[in-house]
């Protein structure tokens, strides 16, 4: 079991003081210590798919369960990336290449294992009807997958009907909706009322350039999320049993 919490490590290494450190140097301090695991995590950080698979193969050959490597190595590597992204040391292109390497690594681990990998929970992500700006949703989806959630990505410009149908079919632990355009933010209202009408009380986490905390708080199911990096934390909190009111207490910042 790898016992590492990058947040604590960062505080221990006092990132604020050492903010001139290169992200690679920071990452060196955050990787898991086991040499095999470290090599995989580092390959994820570097976004090197070939190296990820080679390092996984080495480790699996040494007798480690492939599925355990998804959490212990691949996600540990991605967590380093997410953490440094949160701190503004890495940028979106870094997250994208690492996520791609991680996803290929997960596929490889699944192929190598006979068992079924259990995700932490199912989440539906979408961009509201009328909005074609999906960069926010891409970030959120990548971060959620990196944190072990199964994400059903409905895409962009998704009609309310389709969102509601997907919720009924998939029974997710939460919805993540984004709107970047002010013309489209009102679609959240329809999703909220249609879900309530069907007696579905799933939290709808909303973010994006066009929405504000006040606006989202008007809807019973709405949880406002300012930073994409908070979405996995909200999902973790839902698994810990927080209801919508408590989620708002924890994650609403204004």
């Amino acid at each position: 079991m790898i016992d590492i919490n990058p947040k604590n490590t960062l505080i221990r290494y006092n990132i604020l003081v050492e903010s001139d450190m290169a992200p690679e140097e920071m990452a060196e301090k955050l990787y898991p210590t086991d040499p095999h695991i470290r090599q995989i995590a580092k390959a994820v950080f570097e976004g090197d798919e070939d190296e990820v698979v080679a390092a996984l193969q080495n480790t699996i050959d040494s007798g480690v369960d492939p599925l355990s490597l998804i959490n212990d190595a691949l996600m540990a590597g991605m967590e380093v990336v997410s953490t440094l992204y949160d701190y503004g040391l890495l940028y979106l292109p870094d997250v994208i290449i690492s996520a791609q390497a991680m996803i290929e690594g997960i596929e490889y681990c699944k192929e190598q294992s006979k068992q079924v990998h259990e995700s932490k929970g199912k989440i539906i992500s979408y961009v509201v009807e009328g909005d074609i700006h999906d960069i926010g949703k891409k970030i959120v989806t990548v971060l959620l997958r990196a944190n072990g959630y199964e994400v059903i990505d409905l895409g962009k410009d998704v009609p309310v009907e389709e969102v509601v149908a997907a919720v009924k079919k998939e029974k997710p632990i939460m919805l993540s909706g984004t709107a970047l355009m002010t013309t489209t933010m009102h679609a959240f209202k329809d999703v909220n009322s249609r879900l309530l009408a069907s007696d579905i009380n799933v939290p709808v986490v909303c973010g994006g350039g066009a929405v504000t905390q006040d606006f989202i708080s008007d809807y019973d199911l709405g949880v406002y999320c300012e930073e994409a990096a908070d979405v996995p934390k909200i999902a973790d909190s839902i698994l810990q049993g927080l209801d919508i009111r408590k989620l708002r207490d924890t994650f609403h910042k204004h």
Binding site: G47, L92, P93, D94, I96, I97, Q100, I135, K138
Partner: peptide, 11 residues
């Protein structure tokens, strides 16, 4: 495409 563009920016 944005995704390729970002990927190329590093790789």
């Amino acid at each position: 495409s944005v995704k390729k563009f970002m990927k190329w920016s590093i790789k």
